[in-house]
Design a protein around this nucleic acid. Sequence first.
RNA 1: GCGCAAUUAGCUCAGUUGGAUAGAGCGUCGGCCUCCGGAGCCGAAGGUCACAGGUUCGACUCCUGUAUUGCGCGCCA
Length: 588
Amino acid sequence: MTVDPTPIDPTRALAPRFAAALEAAFGAEYRDTDPLLQWSDRADLQANCSLGLAKRIGEKNPRAVAERLVAKLDASDIVERFEIAGPGFINITIKSEWLAAQLSERLGDARMGVAPTAAPETVVIDYSSPNVAKEMHVGHLRSTVIGDCLARLLEWQGHAVHRQNHVGDWGTPFGMLIEHLLDLGETRAIEELGVGELNSFYRAARVKFEESDAFKDRARKRVVALQAGDQETLRLWKILVDESTAYFDAVYKKLDVTLKPSHIAGESFYNPWLQSVVDELEEKKLSELSDGAVCVFPPGFVSKEKKPLPLIVRKSDDGFGYPATDLAAVRYRTQTLKATRMLYVVGAPQAQHFAMVFAVAKMAGWLAAPARAEHVGFGSVLGTDKQIYRTRSGETVRLVDLIDAAYDRSLEIVRENSTHIPEDEQREIAKAVGNAAIKYADLSSDRVKDYVFDLDRMVKPVGDTGVYLLYAHARSRSILRKVEKEHGLKAPEAGARLLIEHASEKRLVLQISKLASVLDEVTTVLAPHKLCGYLFDLSVRFNDFWNQCPVLQSEGDTRLSRLALVRATADTLKLGLSLLGISAPDRM
RNA sequence: GCGCAAUUAGCUCAGUUGGAUAGAGCGUCGGCCUCCGGAGCCGAAGGUCACAGGUUCGACUCCUGUAUUGCGCGCCA
């Protein structure tokens, strides 16, 4: 006995019925016409295809087209009634019994009836990418949160996901960083880095570099030694990398992010292949020498005065720039990791850079169908003054300070509202609340736009916030706990009888039924904010149901049925939140 | 100068492939506790979808132009 992999979603269940009706009414060539099924605020669903069809058929009256279509529709098991409205919209009311049966079958399923993808891929997600010996700041927040969400989603759908943390662990700054480390002494340097004092470490090195010619000279020589593979220099470099890795790991744990040290494949990782990238480009006659630098001029990219825009693969001083590293990474990911989909979760300003890298990679044959790469760009984090988010003194904000601030505010709120919960559990809840606040605020608006970071707003337990969703979830769990304790009733399992009687119950179940198609859309267009919107709507409908349909006070089949709805809601919220990277406590 | 993106209610944001009356949240005002958790719910006020043209049965959505803002544009990553 296998569970029907067809999702509960009535738009999917109806799609083949429409295809058949379109063929019956207008001929085989109309079978594949999109019925344009949409969720509707005037009915449960609406189909908008009649208006376009009328034109194609040459029928003047779209209402007549709708009538012919409805006459051929065989869906009485799913649909209670079709109504033709306005110029020819088909409004659809779904049978409550059908919805109930669909949901009942999937009750208690860990995937809420959503089947894994039929076409699993190997997906590389490049995200977070902090710099070694440098503080993580708000700029890393978005990449980390968005990338981690996409990684969870795609993995859950059944894809093989490779998380790739492309940390900045190579390049000229390491000359001055290593020399500064030597000045401090290894022990003290490790101490400083160990407690996360990366800002002051980096800044001190920078100041010396700018103020002292002697230091600058040492730094330059050190860079040469590093690139030449000098053992002692590499050992010192490794100290910086290891200390930073431990620091990043602590931040990820704090933020509840799935990145681990093993996911790090930084710039240095690609060093062995940089020359061969250049060689291969030269062999394929794709590159040319321009002012002493090895450049590729991908077609379609022009700078000022219509000059072709180069991707500088090797600089005139023979050093490799980041384009070389990025190209080596593309080649590694398609050829070694066998990725067919690559996501680069990097700020929107780098759109042109990635467009050029991908174009060159295609020219070189490193990025060929079915493999494709997508730059998952995102906007800047702004302060409430609409300027780039900074501290009052104008410095960039440390990511850890931000997380801590959210945690502190959350703890205040939890202490105020959850006096019945012991203190150690309050702290755990506050961690979840703080992370929910930060992540939901980041994920809930269209990622490509800038967003305003407003801690006061995001930790509020009211409104469209992560905390509101956690509360809805905790309320639902509270009922399930209570009914078990007071009445000895367990949460209903698959097959339980569901009675959808009240309008708010139907609205709730319809919302639950959308999960599969929402998740599909979210991973297709890489838009976590659509999942946020879905979960917010679900919470609103649940709270409405809560107010209108008493569970514990009801009896018999009604109570069991409502319990099932509570369980389905709780499970859906928990699942959806977990895919966003947010953990939902059972009580708060 | 060229290119990319953005512009929707006082504020922060949604708006599906071009579909009916452009939706939420916050804030404001007014209601709902003999009721499972009030961190909740319901209602009201609030809009020339930046502006001007165009495409069509129909435009927040597509096209052109203008304005404003942000970001890119050969050896920093």
